[in-house]
């Protein structure tokens, strides 16, 4: 299931796309923004899996920077303000496209996104290794200290932590500590 952001200046086009996507399967959350600042802000907070971006919008970042702000498997579909030829690529939609053409292209990307998302991600259980990392995080150790303790690189610790945060939806250390106590990974007495 994908999160979609529509970045489009035209009010009419934006509303139209929202209307269309609300009827489309496979979308968990839908957001729309028009102003470049709002778009950047929403990108940061929402991190969409699919970005519909009008090609005429000048964002304050380069294309590479934009891609780096999106999740790994994210896809960008460009909205073009002029008509497109019959055999236009699937990552371009035109404001002149028919409903069926738009649905076809957007569904294609939603399907691709689903296909590329490993199914195991649906289970949000922590692995034993992640639980161990979480335990040390909750006890207040830094990434560097955890790395030294478990004979792994700091980079590996960071990547485990990213996965833990993604699976649990908890970002802060104190939030993770609460989770660890609730789930018996550490005891309340263990923390100062």
């Amino acid at each position: 299931m994908a999160k979609v952001l529509i970045a489009e200046t035209s009010y009419l086009v934006r509303k139209g796309l929202v209307g269309l996507l609300e009827q489309t399967d496979g979308i968990t959350e839908l957001k729309a923004a028009g102003h470049p600042d709002t778009i950047m802000l929403t990108l940061k907070e929402f991190s969409p899996d699919i970005l519909l971006l009008n090609s005429a919008i000048t964002l304050p970042v380069s294309h590479e920077k934009l891609v780096s702000k999106l999740p790994d498997r994210a896809r960008i579909i460009y909205i073009i303000n002029t008509p497109l030829p019959e055999d236009s690529p699937s990552h371009q939609i035109s404001v002149f496209d028919s409903k069926s053409k738009l649905s076809e292209k957007i569904s294609f990307h939603l399907q691709k996104y689903r296909d590329e998302t490993p199914e195991k991600e649906d289970t949000e259980e922590l692995t034993p290794r992640e639980k161990l990392i979480l335990k040390h995080v909750a006890l207040g150790l830094t990434n560097k200290e955890i790395a030294a303790k478990l004979f792994i690189s700091t980079h590996t610790v960071i990547s485990h932590r990213k996965n833990i945060t993604r699976k649990l939806d908890i970002k802060t250390v104190s939030g993770l500590t609460v989770y660890a106590i609730l789930n018996g990974i550490i005891r309340m007495e263990d923390i100062g």
Partner: peptide, 15 residues
């Protein structure tokens, strides 16, 4: 906002 979102998620998902 981060901590507040965490609190919300903990209450919603884990308590």
């Amino acid at each position: 906002e981060e901590k507040l979102v965490d609190l919300r998620n903990i209450l919603l998902k884990y308590l």
